[in-house]
Simulated assay, not measured.
Amino acid sequence: MHECAGPGISGEDDFTGLLRLAAEEAGPRVVGYWAQQGEEGVARAKELGAIGAAGDLFVDGALGSHTACLHEPYADSGHTGNAYLDAAAVAAHVVACTEAGVQAGFHAIGDAAVTSVVEGIRAASEKVGLARVRAARHRVEHAEMLTPETIAAFAELGLTASVQPAFDALWGGDDGMYVQRLGAERARTLNPYAALLRTGVPLAFGSDSPVTPLDPWGTVRAAAFHQTLEHRVSVRAAFTAHTRGGWRAIGRDDAGILVPGAPADYAVWRAADLVVQAPDDRVARWSTDPRSGTPGLPDLTPGAELPVCLRTVVFGQPVFVRPDE
């Protein structure tokens, strides 16, 4: 679990209490981020046990409340939202984080907010060096309104897109909240997962709980059956983004897979059928021919029953066993 805390959304006692509870009790691993700006914020993040001065460091707000920062006004309002950090502030924070050897990260949803993040991180790379910025794996939370230019910049700067496919399931489509706020044309551009993958941008899927429920298979389904067809990815690509993706987002390339020597963190699920589900031109780099031996995954076609968790193991120790098993 990635805990995105900060002085503006939770508090130090809440954050350190969660990290302490995770260390003392059987349960999920918890990785903490502390969203506080600049050199002082970076130092405080380290003192509190966070791995980065990141998470919900707000560049803007949300589409539902008309506070995501846009280049053009909302379709149902006469303004462009709120900007809480500009490119200069982003650059200063990224420089401080990069020089301290920790991740920076920002909450950015609207296209103007994402542009500020890209411009700020590019300015930081000109000061500390592009290789150092890329090595730090800085991250952007949500990154919903992207353009071909900002997607290319994510790849150039080595940014991780920490995204929530359930947002599209809830608010996408022809008559969802996105269309109400942005109009149909702009709404169709949101959450372009296939374009991000084609460009080589690392994806880490999550829930943004409590905004959407903790529902991993539902999240994988939402990405594979995105309501905008061109943004869909294969089930396996979505599964990878929700397993290895979270680990890679914290700089761990050895986890999120079941191989000898990898951390023994896994769940056992009951599923009706296993299939290789890439029946169209969604992003996929493996064969769907049964003769290839590509491992199957649960059938996540909308309407199909989602898998049921039977057991969860962390650090090699069971932390959950379904009572009826």
Rank of each mutant, 00 (worst) to 15 (best):
Q180I: 12
D168V: 12
Y33N: 09
F320D: 03
W247A: 02
G17P: 02
H79P: 09
V283R: 02
V314C: 01
D273E: 13
L85S: 02
D208Y: 15
P148G: 02
T243W: 15
S207Q: 06
G172E: 01
G81E: 00
R139Y: 10
H66D: 07
R198A: 15
G38D: 05
A54G: 08
T301S: 12
A166K: 03
P323N: 13
G17S: 14
I151G: 05
T199F: 00
E149I: 04
R285Y: 10
A304K: 13
I250H: 14
G251P: 07
V275W: 08
D76Q: 00
P298Q: 12
V319W: 02
T189D: 13
A91T: 03
E149C: 13
G245Q: 12
V211I: 15
A238L: 13
T199D: 00
E156Y: 14
R244I: 10
V102N: 04
R248G: 03
T16E: 08
C97W: 03
R132T: 09
V95R: 08
A249N: 12
T115M: 13
D254F: 11
V128I: 12
P318N: 02
L63A: 04
H79D: 14
G158V: 11
D60F: 06
T199N: 08
L157I: 01
E141W: 03
D208N: 07
A284F: 04
L70K: 14
S116Q: 14
G27M: 11
P263M: 03
F15M: 15
T240K: 04
S10M: 15
L229N: 03
P260S: 00
V30P: 14
W217S: 11
P148R: 03
F106C: 07
V30W: 03
V233M: 01
